[in-house]
Design a protein around this nucleic acid. Structure first.
Lengths: 225, 225
DNA sequence: GCATTTTTTAATGTATACATTAACGAATGA
DNA sequence: TCATTCGTTAATGTATACATTAAAAAATGC
């Protein structure tokens, strides 16, 4: 229990957190419109903190505030998905290179290794939910090791934007056996301090993932997730 | 005169615009603290629209909202500068590659050429202000041609974060003769549809710029701009 | 004199009343 | 009937009053 759990958090930050959850879970569906007053009522607070939360969510690319038409939960098209994967590909590859050059010792890279182990276990047990969570964790930890705080923030934002869509495609994709080999190869390169290889392997990894998922969306005519 | 000039714009968007201007111009200095009520009074409006603008500015990384201590105009350190240039380097290089692959015709690339000409003229006349504006325009147009709207947004945000610092260093840097050659080389590669070269040349260009400017900041102990 | 508690104060956080305005629909006229 | 104008309405935008709370100041005890 952290300090924040005891003291009451601000309505504004609660609104932000709960709205994000409602968006990620699909309870506020992609493309749906919502009035400030409705959201406020359903969250049991006044419009003020809800408005503030919506402003932040707009900045994070999760909603569009469209005066007098309600707030729209931003839908994701295959083109959006391609844009986002391209960005993640570049920035994470740089992070991988930076992590390799940082010269982390074995202990510092332990969490990354643990996460890869988790992914392998999840794969063996055919638990795609667990695999997806671990995959997320891998990319987050990689970016953290890169040491560029702004890349962390941007990568987080981009991941949030594709979260819903990834959930949908998770069970449509072929079993991502190759992913784990890639992840291990990236870790090995980072251990060796081989920045070029780390970046190159990770770049290829993300590019391949982009191709698979964008084609999946297009094939199934999933134009608005 | 656009349509928006006749009808009254919302106080909130006015606050956003004016606060940005005050930050970029240095009238709200780096690291300085300001109360919502003071800002509201100086802008001649109530706290509500100012609060909303500040929330957006926080999302753009221009201020830190620190309850009960006032809003701090976010200062920029050499490390911050390095982070930002690294991100711009990667994303703009991708944009250059994408622009090359898009197969734009001569007319579509005309604006980019015009901007390069402006930079050369500014350089001949030793007008660094004009050069800096054109340089900004070059990078913005390049990213636009890349066709990834999220990269446009991120690049804009990163540029905004370094705007003040660039202003300070503008007159300390050696005359950027090399820049124009680089820009022309990028344009040529885009014309030819040579994505690899476009990305590689631009990457080297931005890396070099990063090195120069970060060393400049460190040498002069400009730790908080 | 110094540490600790209590009180005060000043700033933010929230609710609410009100102002504004874009969208909708009814009324008007050709 | 249709286009246009004018009101109506419902939603957002803004101001303001009030609640909350962290920090500063004052009081207390040792």
């Amino acid at each position: 229990m952290t300090a924040q759990d005891t003291r009451t958090r601000s309505s504004s930050s609660q609104a932000l957190e709960r709205l994000r959850e409602l968006i990620f879970s699909g309870q506020l569906g992609a493309g749906s419109d919502h009035l400030e007053s409705e959201l406020a009522e359903s969250l049991g607070m006044s419009r003020t903190p809800v408005r503030e939360a919506l402003l932040v969510l707009e900045g994070q690319g999760l909603v569009d505030v469209r005066p007098r038409k309600g707030v729209r939960i931003r839908p994701l098209s295959p083109t959006d998905m391609a844009e986002i994967y391209d960005i993640l590909t570049e920035l994470e590859s740089l992070a991988a290179a930076n992590a390799a050059e940082a010269g982390y010792d074995r202990a510092a890279l332990e969490p990354l290794e643990q996460i890869i182990n988790q992914m392998e276990m999840a794969l063996e047990q055919n638990d795609r939910g667990a695999w997806a969570r671990a995959d997320d964790a891998f990319h987050a930890e990689l970016v953290r090791l890169g040491g560029n705080s702004r890349i962390e923030g941007i990568a987080q934002m981009m991941s949030d934007q594709v979260r819903r869509a990834r959930l949908v495609t998770l069970h449509m994709r072929p079993v991502p056996t190759r992913s784990n080999e890639d992840h291990r190869a990236v870790l090995t390169a980072i251990r060796k301090g081989d920045a070029d290889t780390a970046a190159r392997v990770h770049h290829a990894h993300r590019s391949a993932a982009k191709k698979v998922i964008v084609e999946l969306l297009e094939t199934h005519h999933l134009n608005s997730l």
